[in-house]
């Protein structure tokens, strides 16, 4: 039955080559921990992606309860923390995932750096990776404000004041981020929410896609 459905679709849109390309490649010996245990360092990239998946899933579910509004943001987070079954775990996944993803990203970056794997012909993929790192830091910064607790509010205030110190464009930059020249409030929260939930994830997906396509094109770097 499943086979028939698959054949019916494959007849029409020819999907076999798409997944065959992913499935039918050989993994060389030097990245396989079964042969050299030290090859576990090659896991960090995959684990980073795994945590990203956790972040996307838990984030999607959290927005079922969360409201980006200064009156209700904290109330809704408090409500889901205290009243909704398992919601504390979901928020915990998102909260700790944010830290773990940075750790994994750092380890992955260091692996690539110390192995010199970013050298010709992989310069572009390295730069895409660093951009992913920046996007992640942006996600961390914007996500921090969303629960609208004291920690969030004051840390964001400091962050925005740092942005204000930038010469020439500082004040414009702060206003752009905060939505208001002086107040860190309702407009800041909605802006940060939009950036955190739509703009940066959009950029992240695009960069991840490029990252993975380049890996498939170039293959993994050879042994040292």
């Amino acid at each position: 039955m499943l086979q028939k459905i698959y054949d019916w679709i494959d007849d029409r849109i020819d999907i076999t080559p798409i997944w065959r390309d992913i499935a039918d490649h050989e993994v060389p010996e030097h990245v396989n921990p079964a042969h050299h245990f030290s090859a576990f360092v090659y896991c960090f990239g995959g684990l980073t992606f795994f945590v990203v998946v956790i972040q996307i899933l838990s984030g999607m579910f959290l927005t079922m309860y969360y409201v980006p509004d200064i009156e209700n943001a904290w109330q809704s987070v408090y409500y889901l923390q205290t009243e909704v079954a398992h919601a504390q775990i979901v928020r915990g996944m998102h909260h700790w995932g944010a830290s773990v993803v940075i750790v994994m990203l750092l380890l992955h970056t260091l692996r690539v750096f110390f192995q010199g794997a970013y050298k010709k012909p992989r310069e572009l993929n390295w730069m895409v990776g660093v951009l992913i790192f920046f996007v992640m830091l942006g996600l961390g910064f914007t996500g921090y404000l969303l629960p609208w607790d004291n920690k969030a509010y004051f840390a964001t205030q400091v962050g925005l004041e740092i942005a204000e110190q930038v010469p020439f464009i500082g004040e414009a930059l702060k206003t752009l981020l905060a939505g208001d020249a002086t107040i860190v409030g309702a407009q800041t929260l909605t802006r940060f929410f939009a950036i955190h939930v739509f703009f940066l994830p959009g950029a992240l997906f695009a960069l991840l896609a490029i990252h993975f396509i380049l890996i498939r094109r170039q293959g993994i770097s050879g042994p040292l």
Binding site: Q81, Q88, G92, K151, F154
Partner: peptide
């Protein structure tokens, strides 16, 4: 995951701290 009290812009005694990776 921790949650502090609701943001109170008038709380002058609060010492802000960013997340660990900043």
């Amino acid at each position: 995951s921790p949650l502090e009290g609701m943001a109170d812009p008038t709380d002058a005694a609060y010492i802000p701290l960013p997340d660990w990776y900043f």
